[in-house]
Design a protein around this nucleic acid. Structure first.
Length: 271
DNA sequence: AATCGCGCCTGACGGC
DNA sequence: TGCCGTCAGGCGCGAT
């Protein structure tokens, strides 16, 4: 499911339900996710209270006084808060059961997701320490992007998906932002001038903000915590619309594969 | 240092 | 009905 807006939607959905709740039990049915789920989780998390819930890039961070849970949804995971006696279904890999008998259930058909546990300050974790700025923060500016891309030959699309440059942008929102900013996805990032980066950064912030307001994008299997789909799909201008008319100029939208990812663009509008 | 391609998995879909 | 190829929202890793 998940890019930044979907993870943020997930966070906002589960936060009021599990903040300050005490964990009573952890059930690991399938430990083989992207990385092995540490067995220490089942020993050390019970008894702890969830003191803070945060998002960093596409990671969900659940803090306790004894350590932090790091959750990544990969391509296909979702989290729901259910009653602890809700029957288990295929791909329900992890339950975090709370003293009030609610349960955070991690479901992931493709098992590209991750559930990790660390005692150290979470932002020093190897997965988090090298992340670039949050795209909705002031630190992520046209100046920043311009400086970081000088002399880079990689395409702008590739660098938008590089979490060390900017964290949390995935294929859908990179595609949409480049269309809105009228920048060709295959342009070398080092050859883009500052005014165009100003447009791009504005587009990224605007699209991500709108997507969060709409509860994310549901393509097929993403649902908000209350079971409703995200409503941003109807705002997508080019993603998934190869062969259709460009909403700006009506020329046929084309498809490219850039570093293994499909990109849709308008050859007439984007340069 | 930067870039490229691979692989981890399951499921949906279209063509035959 | 079934088989096969293709594609999918992510991302770290090793090779170059």
């Amino acid at each position: 499911m998940p890019e930044l807006p979907e993870v943020e939607t997930c966070l906002r959905g589960i936060k009021p339900l599990i903040l300050k709740q005490r964990v009573s039990q952890v059930i690991i049915r399938q430990a083989k996710l992207r990385w092995l789920v540490p067995s220490s989780l089942a020993q050390e998390l019970p008894g702890q209270i969830i003191t803070k819930l945060k998002r960093r890039a596409k990671y969900l961070l659940l803090h306790t006084s004894n350590g932090s849970l790091i959750i990544h949804l990969g391509m296909s995971a979702c989290i729901r808060i259910v009653s602890a006696n809700t029957p288990v279904q295929t791909h329900d890999h992890i339950d975090i059961v709370f003293a009030n008998q609610s349960c955070l259930r991690f479901t992931d058909p493709r098992r590209f997701g991750a559930v990790l546990w660390t005692h150290k300050p979470v932002y020093t974790h190897p997965l988090l320490i090298k992340l670039g700025p949050e795209p909705l923060s002031d630190e992520f500016s046209a100046d920043y992007l311009y400086q970081r891309t000088r002399k880079r030959k990689a395409t702008i699309k590739t660098l938008l998906l590089n979490s060390h440059i900017v964290a949390g942008i995935g294929n859908i929102y990179a595609t949409e932002a480049l269309f809105q900013a009228r920048i060709h996805p295959q342009r070398a990032a080092g050859n883009i001038a500052l005014p165009r980066y100003l447009r791009l950064v504005q587009s990224i912030k605007q699209i991500l903000t709108q997507a969060i307001q709409q509860g994310g994008t549901t393509l097929k299997d993403f649902y908000q915590a209350d079971g409703k789909p995200g409503y941003f799909r109807q705002h997508l201008q080019v993603y998934g619309r190869t062969g259709q008319a460009c909403p700006r100029c009506t020329q046929v939208l084309r498809k490219l594969v850039i570093t293994q990812r499909t990109t849709v663009y308008c050859a007439n509008c984007q340069h």
